[in-house]
Design a protein around this nucleic acid. Structure first.
Length: 203
DNA sequence: ACGGGGATGGGCT
DNA sequence: GCCCATCCCCGTA
């Protein structure tokens, strides 16, 4: 269960997106510690990618941390209400990232349930249990990830990713979700997920 | 089962 | 003033 080091993140974004599957995302806060297994990701590979916030070399306050070194967290507000958590990849000044789209609870599922629904986990309906963290906005609520977690060093101790023991799994790929505006990049098969995992956001 | 639309605010033209 | 890497609810079947 070793924390992933800088070198892991400095590689090709498509490789990192696939290899993040099965790894554990850990959020160590003042009063809680939540651990989840990453089961679904999307790669946003760089300035040439019309689906990326960094398309055409765009650099603003919002996406500034995409230009930081690989292994930095990129958290942004979407639709005015939700956050999305990304892992910055590759070298500094190469603005690429991997969006984490779904996770599978490993530790502190009770606290996740409180954050997401304000209820104890056992009293959730089966639909609510499945909806705990099976989407990018949902997992940020359930793991307590918000704008305060933007720009954190994932090689630090507040928010990090570590190796895990896994049963063998196969990786499926599909086009990324909700980027219809991205022209020829909309069809690139850069969404990856663990086949058969029940928390994957959609098949 | 599936589809349409509302919530809600920051980024950008 | 429109667009959004979302989610949930409420229609119609």
């Amino acid at each position: 269960m070793k924390k992933l080091e800088r070198d892991f993140y400095l590689r090709d974004t498509l490789v990192v997106a696939k290899e993040l599957l099965g790894k554990q995302l850990v959020h160590e806060a003042q009063d809680f510690r939540i651990v989840c297994r990453i089961v679904e990701t999307e790669a946003y590979v760089g300035p040439e990618d019309k689906g990326s916030h960094s398309y055409g070399g765009r650099r603003t306050n919002r996406n500034e941390v995409m230009y930081h070194i690989g292994g930095t967290s990129y958290v942004y507000l979407i639709y005015g209400m939700y956050y999305c958590f990304n892992v910055v990849t590759e070298q500094a000044d190469k603005p690429a990232a991997v969006l984490v789209r779904a996770v599978d609870p490993v530790e502190s599922v009770g606290h996740m349930s409180q954050l997401r629904y304000g209820m104890e986990f056992p009293s959730l309906s089966s639909k609510q249990k499945l909806g705990l963290c099976n989407g990018p906005g949902k997992l940020c609520i359930a793991m307590g990830i918000g704008k305060a977690e933007n720009g954190l060093d994932l090689c630090g101790s507040k928010l990090y990713i570590r190796d895990a023991q896994n049963e063998p799994f196969s990786i499926k790929s599909t086009p990324r979700i909700n980027i219809d505006y991205a022209g020829e990049y909309a069809g690139k098969p850069w969404r990856f997920y663990i086949e058969g995992n029940k928390y994957v956001s959609k098949i």
